[in-house]
């Protein structure tokens, strides 16, 4: 199915990171609608809300209070309703172990949080464009792995 804009949700407990994230999307050429939640619990509440239109991609911070990224990922992937949503891990860590663990648990994308705003824009743009190709070209999402 082809839609005109990509729906994106970010779960991150850091207010600055949420702000940079939404700002970065404003300058991209693909139409996106971004909403943010403050932690994993809020994310699951949002997804489970009957009036929510499910996002195309969820960006998940790994270190969050209440419900961390890994537990969120497990919850999402074990729910048939959510398992088609692409999951991007968005973390300060870039250890091979974290990368592999999250991929094995079903994440599609692993992004090490870039340290400056221009890199952030570039990275998010790459993610969205590649995800768009999966979204519009019927590529097999089970094989969608991307590390940036």
């Amino acid at each position: 199915m082809q839609h005109d804009s990509l729906l994106i949700t970010l779960a991150d407990d850091d207010e600055d990171d949420r702000l940079f994230f939404t700002d970065a999307f404003e300058e991209l050429k693909i139409n996106t609608i971004v909403n943010t939640v403050n932690n994993g619990k809020e994310l699951l509440n949002f997804l489970n809300h009957p009036e929510t239109i499910l996002p195309n991609i969820i960006f998940l911070d790994l270190n969050m209070p209440i419900l961390n990224g890994i537990d969120c990922l497990k919850e999402i992937k074990s729910n048939d309703k959510f398992k088609d949503i692409a999951i991007a891990i968005y973390s300060t860590s870039s250890s091979d172990q974290d990368v592999e663990e999250t991929f094995v648990l079903g994440a599609n994308i692993y992004i090490k949080k870039p340290s400056n705003f221009n890199d952030l824009k570039k990275t998010l743009s790459d993610v969205v464009i590649i995800n768009w190709q999966y979204h519009t070209n019927g590529l097999n999402k089970d094989n969608f792995l991307l590390r940036l």
């Binding site: 990368v99 592999e100 991929f103």
Partner: peptide
């Protein structure tokens, strides 16, 4: 293109299937 090597890709998919 993917940020990971073909062998890492193979390993990850194999582990996913085991799970």
């Amino acid at each position: 293109t993917t940020g990971i090597t073909p062998s890492a890709f193979q390993r990850i998919i194999k582990k996913r299937r085991e799970i």
